[in-house]
């Protein structure tokens, strides 16, 4: 049994007056890939933002590698080893591709900026281009690469396949499987059910701000009522 790396305990998160996360608990063990599934508005993104303390929970606790994240600022959570690839990809348009990577470099990562350019020739060809000039797929690759150069112990990914052509989605999936094989812990929010269950070991199904189901991805494929009620697939 590997150690628990991320532990989310009964978090309650509000956005303004809306009670978005109503007591969510789950955990991710080191080296495990956990899919966070659910319909639009189920609270998936807010859960990720709660962990990063961009939307700090009003109560409940998030523990990373035994360290209580309460009271930390977002940049401190990142420095603790949690990387966040946002749904918007959030590439800085005023920075070149290379600068987008360089400002994120932290610690001794397996992924240097040079290795990123070796592994992603599309990005290497555009290293001096502005971040705004990339295609959707290139932005997603850059967003993931930018997470990797920070030497994270865990990556939170929000809808990495969203809006991308099938061939690009395959490349993203291959990359995520490669990271998984290298032992990277990931929390994957994904609307693409087939993709999520292909990559993840376990799934946590959210519905209306609560955990509705937890288990192995294999079991979720057979749990028709859970899928119909909470995922619509």
């Amino acid at each position: 049994m590997s150690d628990v790396l991320l532990k989310v305990e009964d978090i309650q998160t509000y956005l303004g007056d809306s009670h978005i996360i109503q007591g969510v608990s789950f955990e991710a063990r080191a080296g495990e890939v956990v899919a966070l599934l659910g319909r639009n508005g189920a609270g998936k993104t807010t859960t990720l933002r709660s962990i990063m303390r961009m939307a700090p929970p009003r109560s409940g606790a998030v523990t990373f590698d035994g360290r209580d994240l309460r009271g930390l600022r977002t940049y401190e959570v990142a420095r603790a080893g949690v990387a966040f690839v946002q749904e918007t990809r959030a590439i800085f348009p005023s920075l070149s591709v290379e600068e987008n990577l360089r400002i994120a470099v932290r610690g001794k990562s397996d992924w240097s900026v040079e290795r990123v350019f070796d592994d992603f020739p599309h990005l290497a060809a555009r290293r001096r281009n502005g971040g705004a000039q990339l295609s959707g797929g290139e932005q997603q690759m850059l967003a993931i690469a930018r997470a990797l150069v920070a030497s994270p112990r865990m990556i939170l990914l929000d809808e990495p396949s969203e809006g991308l052509a099938p061939i690009i989605v395959e490349q993203i999936a291959a990359l995520l499987l490669k990271l998984k094989a290298a032992g990277m812990t990931m929390l994957l929010v994904e609307q693409n059910f087939a993709l999520a269950t292909e990559i993840a070991d376990r799934a946590v199904v959210l519905g209306k701000g609560r955990v509705r189901w937890t288990g192995a991805c294999e079991d979720l494929k057979g749990a028709d009522d859970v899928r119909r009620t909470w995922l619509g697939v």
Partner: peptide, 24 residues
């Protein structure tokens, strides 16, 4: 310079800069 890149990143999107471990 690196400081300049950090400033531009912060102006573009402060929250994302923080998620990269930058103390804005």
């Amino acid at each position: 310079t690196r400081l300049g890149a950090l400033v531009r990143a912060g102006v573009d999107d402060r929250d994302t800069a923080e998620t990269l471990g930058i103390d804005i």
